[in-house]
């Protein structure tokens, strides 16, 4: 799939799409199928309120609190709910932990399943055909395109989200971060590190 709506050669199709969406939305409101304030609120929530900083808080807690980490790996949905992150597209959460010997990464080959309450809406590349096609078949080559190179003896586990289970990756805690607070650690947790296509950032000294 092309990038969403900013390729120049899509010009005419794009303006058709814009007009079609305007017409559709007007009809939905006029027919009283949707409340216009509901539309604005949905956009505001997913554009401004829900995003990967949520997941970063969960990861940082797991790095600081081993008992929480254990519980998170056993019952992710409940543990994540303790932060108030729950509901749509996060009803059934699983957390997979990256270690020195196992690297986990997540894809949805059939559509775009993604854990919204902890990561927000997925980036274009996650939903687009190249990642969905290649993540399961050549994960190391895909990781290399994200700048991630793993040891040859690290096992790569790719999780294809074919059902209603949603996956959050617990990245490895970067070295030399013992002095950092939970909040400072959360700043090292990137979105991609929680999808498994990246690593957590190194601490700046």
């Amino acid at each position: 799939m092309p990038h969403d709506g900013h390729d120049e050669d899509e010009g005419s199709t794009l303006s058709e799409t814009v007009l079609r969406v305007k017409a559709l939305e007007s009809l939905l409101v006029e027919k009283n199928y949707v409340d216009p304030d509901t539309l604005d609120q949905l956009i505001d929530i997913y554009e401004h309120k829900v995003g990967p900083r949520n997941g970063a808080r969960v990861v940082a807690r797991a790095w600081c609190d081993d008992a929480f980490r254990q519980r998170l790996l056993e019952d992710a949905t409940t543990c994540i709910k303790e932060f108030g992150f729950e509901g749509r597209q996060g009803e059934h959460m699983l957390v997979k932990e990256n270690t020195d010997t196992i690297h986990n990464m997540v894809v949805c080959t059939l559509c775009s399943c993604y854990p919204w309450p902890v990561l927000g809406l997925p980036p274009v590349w996650y939903k687009a055909a190249p990642y969905r096609a290649r993540a399961v078949a050549e994960p190391r080559a895909v990781l290399a395109e994200f700048g991630v190179t793993l040891d040859d003896d690290t096992e790569v586990r790719v999780w294809d989200s074919t059902a209603e289970l949603r996956y959050l990756i617990l990245p490895m805690r970067p070295k030399n971060t013992e002095h950092l607070s939970e909040q400072q650690l959360a700043d090292l947790v990137t979105r991609d590190s929680m999808i498994g296509t990246g690593l957590a950032l190194e601490a700046t000294s």
């Binding site: 969403d4 969406v21 939305e25 939905l28 956009i43 809406l121 274009v124 590349w125 687009a128 991609d192």
Partner: peptide, 24 residues
């Protein structure tokens, strides 16, 4: 299908119409 091409500092939506389709 080509390379992954991740976009740096990607916005949640790339156009107003995408927001409207999402919400509708």
């Amino acid at each position: 299908l080509g390379p992954i091409n991740p976009e740096q500092n990607e916005p949640v939506f790339h156009a107003e119409w995408e927001k409207r389709v999402f919400a509708c």
